[in-house]
Design a protein around this nucleic acid. Sequence first.
RNA 1: GUGAAUGUAGCUCAAUGGCAGAGCACUGGACUGUGGAUCCAGCUGUUGUGGGUUCGAGUCCCAUCAUUCACCCCA
Length: 441
Amino acid sequence: MAVQAQILKGTRDFLPERMILRQYVTGKLRDVFENFGFEPLDTPAIEYAEVLEGKYGDEADKLIYKFEDRGGRRIGLRYDLTVPLARVIGTHPDLARPFKRYQIAPVWRAEKPQKGRYREFWQCDVDTVGSASSLADAEVVCVAYDALRRLGFRHFKTKINSRKMLAAIAEYIGLSPDQAPAVYRAIDKLDKIGIDGVKEELAECGLNSPLISRLLDLLQVRGDADVVLAQLRTKLADSAMGAQGVDELDEVVRYLRWLGVSESNFEVDFSMVRGLDYYTGPIFETVVEEPKIGSICGGGRYDGLVGLFTNRPTPATGISLGLERIVDVLEELHLGGVPEMKTVTYALVTVFSQDTVGESLRAASELRAADIHTEVFLGKDKLGNQLRYASRKGIPFTIILGPDEIATGKAIVKNIATEEQVTIERAELVDWVLSKHEVLK
RNA sequence: GUGAAUGUAGCUCAAUGGCAGAGCACUGGACUGUGGAUCCAGCUGUUGUGGGUUCGAGUCCCAUCAUUCACCCCA
């Protein structure tokens, strides 16, 4: 009886075809991240549980995978890439500031999986530690914008809000710290349950109707960034913190324009909240309109988090792209520019018989020397099966070297997709394949 | 953590409480050096698991496990 070939709920195998797409996506992201001067970083998958605990909020804390090792140490699997970054700054306080890094790595959350949600998934984070400038906030938003554009995304919107504006409201209403999260959550549901739904939820939070009216009034401010900010400035005029939040967003928006981020891809949205506790300033979240898969990108400023590990206040801001959601959307939309390679192999050299295998191997070596990914057929199958293998795997070119070709100094190259087959001089094999190779490179 | 739906061949799915089937895939052949098309033949099962009702259960009931979807929360 074989062992059950089962994988854990919410986890997945990435078969080659999908893995090729994932690598394409992460490759593009890496290019964009480095283009803005962010440096690569990696951290352990496991951390001391205390490092992770108490950073995300009560709800999120419950979703941290934890276990005890043989020495009785309490271990946690990383829940995101932001807290480990804060820990890195504490571990290596001498890093030059601002410290700009990116990290593309898996994180784990003990949630119940559903569409677009997994227990093991990859995040692609870009963060700047040690800069309080709004330019740092705008820059990470711009990085995400560039990355999505370069992947072929067009219809997406980055919502921008400020925890300071939200806090101003909480303060004005007189919410206690344990009431605030519930109110935030109700606000955040606007898209999902509509204005009346939010009204009900707020009532359940214990707010009286004048307060609810004021909140709903704020939530319904819509329009261009400038218009929204101007209105919020008026409506939040009685709060110093609120005014500061508006000023900051004003700066972020100005920088975004200078950076060339299209007006159609961002908006100020007072109803966007984000769940994690550690955010302190501007917050961002990017949603794709067409397939409703939730947000593909989120982040914000967290000026208090790094200080927990360093004893000195350290401002920081960053953004995180969700790899699986991006890949899911790419697959669903079939966006142009995404290569449709099913295999990394470009050429298959067939083997006619034991007598000719040497010729096949020599040809394969020549192709590889020219950086053309080349397989030699492993087996003694008849030619039909060898072509069948190439066809099933989607290998673009098959090289046929039988006794006839070898005797006359020729080679047959067959394009499996187009059925075209040409006989060429054996000596020109590499150049011929190389000339076709350009297309896919 | 809460709720709902679904578990039958490698995959997708059929079968009124009455002999477990089809398509795809796979293997061989038609085709001794040409795949993907067509035709022929073949292979494929503890109906998720454990109980119960019944003359008889894939089908009804209970439990359990798994998967999916939704809620909470989130990438």
